[in-house]
Amino acid sequence: MWTVNSIGRLGNQMGEYATLYALAKLNGHQAYILPAMHQYLATIFKITLPMISSEMVGKIHWRNYNLHDWMLEEYRHIQGKYVKLTGYPCSFTFYHHIRHEILQEFTFHDYIKEDSNKYLLQLRGLRKSVTYVGVHVRRGDYVNVMPQVWKGVVADKKYLDKAMNYFREKYHDAVFVVVSNGMAWCKEKIDASKGDVYFAGDGQESSPGRDFALIAHCNHTIMTIGTFGIWAAYLAGGETIYLANYTLPDSPFLNVFKPSATFLPEWIGIPADLSPLRPKS
């Protein structure tokens, strides 16, 4: 019986679930999820891993096995019948070889799918064709945590303009669906004067399911930073633009985060402007 810790918000929970699913399969063990994870994910997705009861969790003597945020050869040979994987794994290197199964696990419940498609259809209006681009702008605690703790930045107006113009030039019928936990900033910084930008996010961290489903149902993705955007892009397929090199080279963040194991090779990175982090001359 293998399980994984249930920590973090939606993107983290998805990363933990997918990693448990893949590693238990590789090592020939049955995976079970904790009640907290079931509560988080089963309301949104048609997940199939069984849940272990709280009572049972307490009775088992688990072997905690901490994971890096990327796959290592040794993870194919983890010993133990009662293993609890720990950490915040969110890397395609764990599960991309069974992508089809992972996408199957993260199939949205029908009512969520219908809700998303209904909203996107309304945005289409009288247009003959539409290419939907989901835009996730992660702000919240990251606005302070990135510069103060990780020597990094969050996405700025310049990045979003570049990313959106890429899609505008490529698809004449592009429509942008913006979700964020900093919607006031988005409305101030994102140019919606062309009539192709819709601010859909409710800005509430506590109800991310609807926002997530909305951009995962789009054709393409613009993400900023964070696992929420990574997973939305992974589920949407299509083209993805991400914020690249958003920390200084000596950032402690790079000890726990490996960009090459996080962003798919075909995704397009636009380098962040790090000048706000550099001392004023």
Rank of each mutant, 00 (worst) to 15 (best):
R9N: 15
R9T: 14
R9C: 09
R9H: 09
Y17F: 00
Y17A: 00
K25R: 07
N27I: 07
Q30P: 07
Q30H: 10
A31S: 14
Y32P: 02
L34F: 01
L34P: 00
A36S: 10
M37W: 00
Q39T: 10
Y40K: 12
I44R: 06
F45T: 06
I52H: 02
S53A: 08
S53R: 11
M56D: 15
V57Y: 13
V57A: 13
G58K: 12
I60H: 09
W62P: 00
Y65V: 03
W70Y: 13
W70A: 06
W70C: 05
L72F: 03
I78H: 14
Q79W: 08
Y82P: 12
Y82W: 14
G87W: 03
Y88R: 01
C90D: 07
C90E: 11
C90K: 05
Y95F: 12
I102H: 06
L103M: 02
T107F: 01
H109P: 08
Y111C: 12
Y111W: 13
Y111D: 12
K113W: 15
D115V: 14
S116F: 02
K118Y: 15
Y119K: 11
Q122Y: 12
K128Y: 06
V130H: 04
V133H: 01
R138L: 04
R138G: 02
G140R: 09
Y142L: 14
V143A: 14
N144V: 14
M146Y: 06
M146N: 12
Q148L: 12
K151H: 12
Y159M: 08
Y159N: 03
Y159V: 07
K162N: 06
E169N: 13
K170Q: 01
Y171H: 12
A174T: 05
A174E: 05
V178R: 03
N181E: 00
W185C: 04
C186V: 01
C186E: 02
K187A: 04
E188Q: 11
K189Y: 10
D191H: 04
D191E: 03
D191F: 02
S193F: 10
S193L: 13
S193P: 08
D196G: 09
D202N: 08
D202S: 11
E205Y: 09
E205V: 11
E205M: 14
S206R: 15
S207L: 11
S207P: 06
S207G: 07
P208K: 01
L214Q: 01
I215K: 03
I215H: 03
C218I: 03
I222N: 00
I222L: 00
I225R: 04
T227D: 07
T227V: 05
T227G: 08
I230V: 11
W231E: 14
W231G: 05
W231C: 10
W231K: 07
A232N: 01
A232Y: 02
A233G: 06
Y234D: 00
A236S: 12
G237C: 03
G238P: 02
E239A: 04
T240K: 05
T240P: 03
T240C: 10
I241K: 05
L243E: 03
T247F: 14
L248Y: 04
P249C: 10
D250K: 12
D250G: 13
S251Q: 04
F253P: 11
F253R: 15
F253K: 09
L254P: 13
N255D: 12
N255F: 04
F257C: 11
S260A: 15
A261P: 12
E266T: 13
W267I: 00
W267T: 00
G269N: 01
G269V: 02
A272F: 08
A272C: 08
S275L: 14
L277T: 07
R278N: 11
P279H: 11
K280I: 14
